[in-house]
Design a protein around this nucleic acid. Structure first.
Lengths: 339, 339
DNA sequence: ACGGTTTCCGCAAACGTGTCCATTATAGGT
DNA sequence: ACCTATAATGGACACGTTTGCGGAAACCGT
């Protein structure tokens, strides 16, 4: 049989459905004893309000749409975890949608979110395509981006402070005595890569170390790409003594390449990653890396979005500082005097 | 200004709103040219149907609720990815909710799903508490469990074939020549642990290897616990020459403990994990492990749920076979003749 | 030309809730 | 006792859609 509606319990209580509606929302217009009585009946009948009917009249669904390239990315998953947590704390539910970076699917997602009348949208670290962005912004719905990969198309976003973090990471290598420091980047030209590369350059410049283009190699942000890129660096007549990687995934691949070349980390080559994924702590050797406060970033994004939904203003861009986590993949170069 | 409704475009087209409704659903009751005309107008006005209004009358929300302990678990994330994919392919959206295994939050989630009138629910590998299950089942909504940790409370579930998989994994160690094989389990008494342990026992029995209780140690399913459990095994007067771990996370901790003891994998001790998480491939040495087709399991769960929603019957329990992935953490024991 | 189909479309009710406005009961003041 | 201010409740409409039913127009066969 049907779930009981407000009318059913109105009949049972011998009042009008408006009264029931008010009672359930603890309206001060009602006599406290009436409220008590009605709520008790509702309880007994196992009444649960219909969010869909409510949304229809209030024009608020109390849902937010979260679109990610794939939730099976540890970075993304934790961000989403943070988002979901604060959303839930504020009575919002989240729709999760994977785009898989497929234009066709992205369209479907946008369409779906529009139809479901989500109150806001969060896009995390996705390679939002040109096709995608106008689609989303035409929805007239607040949008917040996390680690946006393309610069400046949306107003609100939270990002890691790439520049400062990678500058510090590179500086760490310099302080250890390294001068031949390579940058193992990402070839897709993301904003994060650009910024991290800039931080690397900055640290070099500050230390008066000349930048050598041959010490830059590009992977695909995944172990496979990092592996290939590292192999390239190893073929140099004078390979680097330290490598700063765009992310941990790349570093993992690099690690493999180094091992296969019969060299050891950090004895022969120091390695620094970025992200502080779970693996960083448990690979061999444990990886020195830049931690991104992923969950916190998710929370921030959700908070901003909720503010926007309330109609309040919010920060346009929040830069979250990264944290350099020192582990065992970095050490002074083997023989600094040999150069 | 407001989003255009069916009435707005009815006015623009000079027809009734019912006609518009039918036109948008390509009803055969309408003249094709009328349909064309109306759809064109709808297009121009940027009309998108309101799923919430539709749900109110059709009594179907085309949403499913997915509850997980935490999405920041690589296993869970991939299952969810599979769920989301097939759900989306069938026009369903997914609500994602983390329970964090907190009873309070679990209640909120169940409440939320009930209010939102989800058409079905999937619970993945969560430690569904006693508090939780009646709450969910009282919703009178189809439920499917993935890797259910408690036996037999719900009707429909998809699980990995723990018994067969761990029997095969253990058999692999036996075939390499090991006889002192330890089981590094999970102390929380989950069904998966019980089943995997049973598979381990079975392989031993079949090979005529006596079961030694001192070769069983329990972790917490995470690296920390695996680390401790392995240390305990290493203190034995005669440590095992091979260890079958409840999961990859535990194996990672065990690996660390073995390294710290100055031993090497697989030279001194062979190690087998379970799950085939991403790290298994990229740790040192790469881990021999049992692969769970996580995404596929998610897809299966979604398919079953959709069938149930359609009112069709569905398999009560699907057992998905695991696959033993041979990498470099297993080898023959160092000196089989020394025993 | 006429009754009977068929085709096409509008009317109205329904889904479950929120809320403005009107109405009635209660209390408060003289 | 009467008028008024206040408290408590009900009536009615709205939100945006789907859908059964009935009516009008067009078509068909004789």
């Amino acid at each position: 049989m049907r779930k009981p509606s407000i009318k059913d319990i109105a009949a049972a209580a011998g009042v009008s459905h408006s009264t029931v509606s008010r009672a359930l929302r603890n309206s001060p217009l009602l006599k406290p004893e009436t409220i008590q009585r009605i709520q008790k009946i509702a309880q007994e009948k196992g009444y649960t309000a219909s969010a869909v009917a409510r949304s229809l009249v209030t024009r608020r669904t109390h849902t937010i749409g979260v679109v990610v390239t794939t939730i099976a990315d540890p970075f993304v998953a934790e961000v989403v975890s943070g988002i979901e947590q604060t959303a839930n704390d504020h009575g919002y539910s989240v729709f999760l949608a994977n785009s898989n970076a497929e234009p066709e699917r992205e369209l479907k997602v946008a369409q779906s979110f529009a139809e479901r009348r989500v109150d806001g949208i969060i896009v995390t670290s996705s390679r939002v395509g040109a096709l995608y962005t106008p689609m989303l912004s035409s929805l007239q719905i607040p949008i917040v981006l996390v680690n946006n990969q393309h610069p400046g198309q949306f107003v609100h976003s939270v990002m890691i402070a790439n520049f400062e973090a990678s500058r510090d990471a590179t500086r760490h290598l310099i302080q250890l005595g390294h001068t031949r420091i390579a940058y193992l980047g990402d070839r897709f030209g993301y904003q994060s890569d650009t910024e991290r590369f800039a931080g690397y350059r900055e640290a070099l410049d500050c230390a008066g170390i000349p930048f050598l283009p041959e010490l830059v190699s590009h992977g695909d942000g995944k172990p496979e790409g990092g592996y290939e890129a590292m192999k390239k660096l190893l073929t140099l007549p004078e390979p680097p003594t330290a490598v700063f990687c765009y992310n941990d995934m790349s570093a993992l691949g690099a690690l493999k390449a180094i091992r296969e070349a019969g060299l050891r980390v950090p004895r022969d080559i120091s390695l620094v990653g970025f992200d502080d994924l779970f693996v960083a702590e448990y690979c061999e050797p444990p990886l020195t890396t830049v931690r991104q406060p992923r969950r916190h970033m998710g929370r921030l994004a959700a908070e901003i979005l909720l503010k926007l939904i309330q109609g309040a203003g919010a920060e346009e861009l929040i830069r979250v500082p990264g944290e350099l986590i020192l582990r065992e993949s970095t050490a002074p170069p083997r023989s600094p005097e040999s150069r």
